[in-house]
Design a protein around this nucleic acid. Sequence first.
DNA 1: ATGGTATTGCAAATGATTTGCAAAGACATT
DNA 2: AATGTCTTTGCAAATCATTTGCAATACCAT
Lengths: 143, 143
Amino acid sequence: MSNRINAEKILKNRGYKLTKQRKVIIEALSNRGGPYTANEVFSLVSNKYSGINFSTIYRNLELLVKLGIVEKLNINDECCHFKLAGKNHHHHIICNKCGEIKEIDICPFKEIVNINKFKELDFQPIEHRFEIFGICSKCRSKE
Amino acid sequence: MSNRINAEKILKNRGYKLTKQRKVIIEALSNRGGPYTANEVFSLVSNKYSGINFSTIYRNLELLVKLGIVEKLNINDECCHFKLAGKNHHHHIICNKCGEIKEIDICPFKEIVNINKFKELDFQPIEHRFEIFGICSKCRSKE
DNA sequence: ATGGTATTGCAAATGATTTGCAAAGACATT
DNA sequence: AATGTCTTTGCAAATCATTTGCAATACCAT
């Protein structure tokens, strides 16, 4: 089942209406991978539905986050990024030059929680984030 | 050498003036550990220097970040946190209930970069972040 | 097709952070 | 200690991302 169909099903099941705005937002996020700012989502969506409002974008991104369809990332200070919540857990590499954000399917978590020192902390982990900043190959080759 | 003295020395060496405002900001961050929002820094500092302005706080936090004295964290969407940049590299555990941010001196990075898959990415890592969200022991015991 | 309710667009509010500018302060030099 | 220069501050207003109240509109079960 495609991401799009799945997301629409979740909305319906939970009693939310499937508006044209919601459809195009989900479509935009489903087609292309990368995390987008609300601004970028707005641009993508405006192609399909000019006239959509910014608050609609925000309200729905927030809703989709609540439903687990979308993930919200705090990569930098400027603004949040949103991306389709993958079934597959992953982290990100972010290029300091071009700002490109890419997924990596390497996760350091399993090993970490088993360390004794971590157990001593008496902290119940729920979620974690791991982000690597650096220079991507494209930007490196441009120098 | 204390954090405070060290920070003041860096400022001087780089040609920045050691104003009363800068002193109290550095003092506030040096005395207490935890990452603080600009708001919290303002409160802490206001005790020692009432009348200090918010833009002074922001301008100087940004300067201290530039000089490597302070670290800026993007923990949540609301606002940034600032903390004294430790010589010791570390990460954070953040309580989802009380919001407390604590340092942990466990780092998953060394193992990660040696994985073949990571090398394939052809990405030159510079910096990384690893944050674990969950429930701290204090909040758990309150339930 | 109709009606009730969720959702939208709009415009204004909010909250964190930044900026321009004139006045005040730091500090090297006398 | 006084002087001059250049940085830094306080203030008020601007900015930018995000949120909110409200009336108009669109969904969708009937």
